[in-house]
Simulated scan of single mutants.
Amino acid sequence: MKTARSKIALLVPALMALMLAVTNLWALEPGPDGYYQTGEGIRVKTFAFIDVNVYRITHSIKQLPGTKSKQALIDADVDKKFVLTLMRDVDLEKMQNALKDSLALNGYKNKANVDKFLGAMTKELKENSRVTISYSAEKKATTIKLDGGTATVEGVDFMKGVWSIWFGKIDQPKLTEQLMSKLP
């Protein structure tokens, strides 16, 4: 009986160490820039019966939220960013309207802020162009950078509106799932 107990006593710590090691294999680690990439996906637009890849998007955040939820990512008042890489040419007006409509769908209606943000888009978006949307927690400001312009809009409310485009009400819920797929 003592032999069995002593073997179990030795086995339990070994099993716990093994479980910890396996768990750490899947732990999300920050990149060299200090950001954790929470996921990536492809925005697809359907025309008639044809699916067209519009852009590849990644989401990164400096501090992981306490819970794995869309709302936690929207509300996180930490440095975070989206990087979009165009997979095809996109008409400037179509992109502006899509972002404006998504903000409105998610309840953000400050026209002056939306116009300032979208004002950074001054020319057609070509295939392989990059659009970076970042939030600075220190400055409480959201910045969009792309070939042709940069704009910064202050306010946590605007950041939450922008993050709601991909983590709020969206016509492609699979994309939202992909953007948070690496969260523990």
Rank of each mutant, 00 (worst) to 15 (best):
T3I: 10
T3E: 06
A9C: 00
L20S: 07
A21W: 11
N24R: 09
N24S: 09
P32H: 04
G34V: 12
Q37W: 02
Q37Y: 05
T38S: 10
F47D: 15
A48L: 15
F49S: 15
D51F: 10
V54G: 03
V54W: 11
R56Q: 13
R56Y: 12
S60P: 00
S60Y: 00
I61D: 04
P65C: 08
G66Y: 05
G66W: 01
T67Y: 04
K70E: 14
L73D: 07
L73Q: 11
I74C: 12
D75I: 01
A76F: 08
V78F: 07
D79H: 08
K80T: 07
F82K: 00
V83K: 04
L84Y: 12
T85L: 12
T85Y: 03
T85A: 11
L86H: 04
M87V: 04
R88M: 15
E93R: 13
M95W: 10
Q96V: 09
Q96G: 15
Q96C: 11
D101E: 15
L103E: 06
K109G: 11
D115H: 06
D115S: 05
L118N: 01
M121C: 08
T122G: 15
N128H: 09
S129I: 01
S129M: 05
T132E: 10
T132W: 03
T132K: 09
Y135M: 02
S136Y: 07
K139Y: 04
A141T: 05
I144F: 02
K145L: 06
K145C: 02
D147W: 01
G149T: 08
T150Y: 01
T152K: 00
E154N: 05
D157I: 02
K160C: 00
G161H: 04
S164F: 05
I170P: 03
D171E: 13
Q172F: 15
K174W: 09
L179V: 08
S181I: 05
L183S: 06
